[in-house]
């Protein structure tokens, strides 16, 4: 919801790994209040997957990150940076 104190902005979240099977595009764009935290964003994405329990379970185990670092749950959404949704990792 837009309001004067915390106008909304669009955030792009790039998808990786197992999330590629739950969405037909490589990224999700969400309009969210500028004061929103990572936890808020997680809740908004959960709404997109409300009919898919597997996607919501993967979301719960996943982290949000910028190109530089993984974000904490209580952090605000960085301005002017694309985000990434990172499922549990398994390189090698």
């Amino acid at each position: 919801m837009n309001n004067a104190a915390t106008p909304a902005r669009e955030v792009r979240i790039n998808l990786f790994g197992g999330f590629r099977q739950f969405h037909d595009q490589p990224a999700i764009s969400i309009e969210i209040e500028r004061s929103a935290t990572v936890a808020t964003l997680r809740g908004r994405i959960a709404e997109l997957f409300e009919d898919d329990a597997n996607a919501r379970a993967l979301l719960k185990a996943s982290a949000f990150a910028t190109d530089r670092r993984v974000l904490g749950e209580d952090e605000g959404i960085p301005a002017d940076e694309e985000l990434a949704l990172l499922p549990p990792v398994c390189g090698g």
Binding site: F16, V89, G91
Partner: peptide, 24 residues
């Protein structure tokens, strides 16, 4: 941040479970 999807001889594919980066 690396993920792997295994492809099997029966034609199926699966994303391999890994280690969570988050602590929430």
């Amino acid at each position: 941040p690396i993920w792997k999807q295994e492809h099997y001889t029966d034609g199926d594919s699966e994303w391999v479970q890994g280690h969570a980066l988050c602590s929430h």
